[in-house]
């Protein structure tokens, strides 16, 4: 029998929201579901390498400089306070033994979670594949995700 599918669009690049997405992804994978995470827009920052900037033209380069990538550089959706909020949050997560987002990415890979990166955001932001960490399973667009949703048991947008 095919496994039940759990699909998540990770649109947000906020630490707190991405954490929620990964908690659900890893748990559902542990519950025997097939999990697909579709990273788009700000969500792609989770999978970006830490680089000064990227992009093909000046606007993209400026945008990607402001919109820093890297799983350990995500802002908070509230109380970001120029990075003080996430700094405090990361210490609190450590104190409570909650894995960091980087650890959640690795754990998700180990549990067989499929990670899909949105090609539209790619072109739009001027990203190259080498701006991203290894282990992305697929580069695809909305139709791919919608087909997963059609076959899916649960689908979320975070």
């Amino acid at each position: 029998m095919d496994k039940e599918k759990f699909n998540i669009v990770v649109f947000s690049g906020d630490l707190d929201k991405v954490l929620a997405a990964f908690i659900l992804a890893t748990t559902s994978a542990s519950m025997g579901m097939e999990v697909n995470m579709f990273f788009t827009f700000w969500g792609l920052n989770v999978l970006r390498k830490k680089k000064l900037t990227s992009g093909r033209n000046i606007l993209q380069k400026m945008m990607n400089f402001m919109n820093m990538g890297g799983a350990d550089r995500l802002p908070l959706s509230k109380f970001n306070m120029l990075g003080l909020g996430p700094m405090m949050m990361k210490i609190m997560m450590k104190q409570s033994k909650i894995p960091s987002i980087e650890e959640f990415v690795r754990m998700s890979k180990d549990l067989g979670v499929k990670m899909i990166a949105c090609t539209t955001t790619f072109s739009f932001m001027g990203f190259q594949k080498d701006d991203f960490i290894d282990g992305i399973d697929d580069f695809a667009g909305a139709a791919t995700f919608l087909q997963l949703v059609r076959e899916g048991k649960i689908s979320y947008f975070i």
């Binding site: 890893t26 542990s30 519950m31 033994k97 909650i98 894995p99």
Partner: peptide, 13 residues
Amino acid sequence: GLLCPMPIISTSQ
């Protein structure tokens, strides 16, 4: 000392 979802993920492993 572990919080959700770690006990469940560890159990599944």
